[in-house]
Structures are given as structure tokens and as C-alpha cells.
């Protein structure tokens, strides 16, 4: 029995050391990506191509989900608020929840599962089929040519996608509250505008999405580059991208929210 415990403790220690080692490797890889970004930013057509895959192809799911989330918020918000005779505040409720929290977080989760996993799978597959090594043998650095453009495309698309999500959400809330239920349109918008502050709510929301964008794409490109070059390795890496991204998004969201909205409102 004590032997088992010793082995168990050793196992835990081994895992901890292993994850710290991996974290260090990931940080080194992230720095490397940033250092080698110069070339890909100068050749912007590379980033445009990746913007198509990370941005344009994620747009549909973002727009549709945003619309539905906004409609649900509108419906639930109305149900609760009308008990206090404050149904005109439903616009404020929808807009604030979306701009501060749901927009950045849900859009980031969707982005991680749609675009993040695709980035990991693509890079992992390129590694498994020796494309990255072939590139290296052609004297082209795969980090600069493959990783950096995908990273920057992700960082650029994330805030835009989150903004689309929030806008669609507000529109969904408007559809349900004003068009369907019949809340007064004027007070819907004016209450929203008087309560949503550009600097504190919208800019903070955008900062959040930028941070999420960096985190998700950094995780995605690292997992892809670090994947075992086999079919199982790539599928495992893809799963890890989605799981790790989701945890990191929610954790970062708490930290950022605590920083931004502390002592305000």
C-alpha cells in the first residue's frame, strides 16, 4: 500500500513537471512566433488568405449564434423585467450583457471550436505529412511562413467577430422585445444608450476580445506545431486546443473583468 502511494505521488510530480516544461516550451514558441512575424506582416497577402479561413468561414456561426443569444436574452429579460414594470430596460439588459460578457466570451468559445481547432488540425496535418519539414529543407522557416500568418489572422478576426456577435445579439433582442412583444422602441434604444458607456463597456469588451484572440490562436498554433505527427496525435491536439482555449477564455474573463469593472458601476 505505501508503495502505491509513493508511485501515485511520483506520478503527480511527474505530471506537474511535465506541464511546467510544456508551458515553458509554449512560451518560447509564442515569443518565436512574435519575433518571426515581421515577414508575414510585410507580405500581407499571406494573412489575407488566413483571414478567409479563420474569419470569413467563422462568420456564419457567429452571426447566427449572436442572433439567437440576443433573442433569448430579450425574451428572458422581458419576462423578468415586466414583473417590476421595467420592461423598457430590456434593451439595456441585452446590450450590457452582450457587450461586457456574452459577446466576447461566447464569440471566443465559438471561435476556438471553429477556427482554433481548424488551425491546429491544419498545422498538425502539415506536420504529419512532413510538409513543415519539407519547407524547412527548402530554407523557408515554417514558423514564419505557416504559423505567424495564422496567428495574426486569428488576432485580427477575433475582435471583429465578437463585434458582429454583439451587434447581431442586440438586433435579436430588438426583434423579440420591440417587434414581437411591442416594447416601446424609443425607450428601448434611449435607455440602452444612456446606460452603455463607450469607454467602460464597449472598449473594455473589445480589449477582452483582443486578449482572447491572442490566447486562442497562440494555443491553436502551438498545439498544431507540437502535435504528434500521426492521425491520433493531430486529433488529440485538436481536442486539446478546444478544451484548453475554453478554460483559458473563462479564466482570463474573470481576471479581466475583475480588473476592468472593479469599483465601477
Amino acid at each position: 500500500m505505501p508503495r502505491r502511494i509513493v508511485i501515485g505521488i511520483q506520478g503527480v510530480g511527474h505530471r506537474v513537471i511535465d506541464s511546467v516544461w510544456r508551458l515553458g516550451y509554449a512560451a518560447r514558441f509564442f515569443t518565436l512566433t512574435l519575433l518571426k512575424s515581421g515577414a508575414s506582416i510585410r507580405r500581407f497577402s499571406l494573412i489575407i488568405r488566413e483571414l478567409y479561413f479563420t474569419g470569413v468561414l467563422t462568420m456564419v456561426i457567429i452571426l447566427v449564434s449572436g442572433l439567437f443569444v440576443g433573442m433569448v436574452l430579450g425574451l428572458q429579460g422581458y419576462e423578468t423585467l415586466q414583473k417590476y414594470g421595467a420592461e423598457t430596460a430590456v434593451g439595456t439588459l441585452v446590450a450590457l450583457s452582450l457587450v461586457r460578457e456574452l459577446g466576447p466570451v461566447v464569440a471566443a468559445l465559438l471561435f476556438a471550436s471553429r477556427a482554433g481547432s481548424a488551425i491546429t488540425a491544419e498545422i498538425g496535418l502539415m506536420k504529419a505529412t512532413e510538409q513543415l519539414e519539407a519547407m524547412g529543407m527548402m530554407a523557408v522557416d515554417p514558423v514564419a511562413r505557416v504559423v505567424a500568418p495564422r496567428f495574426w489572422a486569428g488576432v485580427i478576426s477575433m475582435p471583429l467577430l465578437a463585434a458582429m456577435f454583439s451587434t447581431m445579439g442586440v438586433f435579436g433582442g430588438y426583434l423579440v422585445a420591440v417587434v414581437l412583444i411591442g416594447v416601446d422602441e424609443g425607450s428601448f434604444w434611449s435607455q440602452m444608450q444612456s446606460m452603455v458607456d463607450f469607454r467602460f463597456d464597449i472598449v473594455n469588451g473589445i480589449i477582452k476580445t483582443c486578449v482572447f484572440g491572442v490566447a486562442i490562436t497562440a494555443i491553436a498554433v502551438f498545439e498544431g506545431y507540437d502535435a504528434q505527427p500521426t492521425a491520433e496525435g493531430v486529433s488529440g491536439a485538436t481536442t486539446r486546443t478546444v478544451v484548453t482555449s475554453a478554460l483559458v477564455i473563462l479564466g482570463l474573463d474573470f481576471v479581466l473583468t475583475a480588473f476592468m469593472f472593479r469599483g465601477v458601476g
Partner: peptide, 15 residues
């Protein structure tokens, strides 16, 4: 579309 959404957020939703 993304920049438009940001503008709408800033002007129509925000103050």
C-alpha cells in the same frame, strides 16, 4: 462587416 459592427456598437448601442 466587422468594422461596421464596431461602429454600430459605438454609435447606436453605446453613448
Amino acid at each position: 462587416a466587422g468594422v461596421g459592427a464596431l461602429l454600430i456598437l459605438a454609435l447606436k448601442v453605446g453613448n
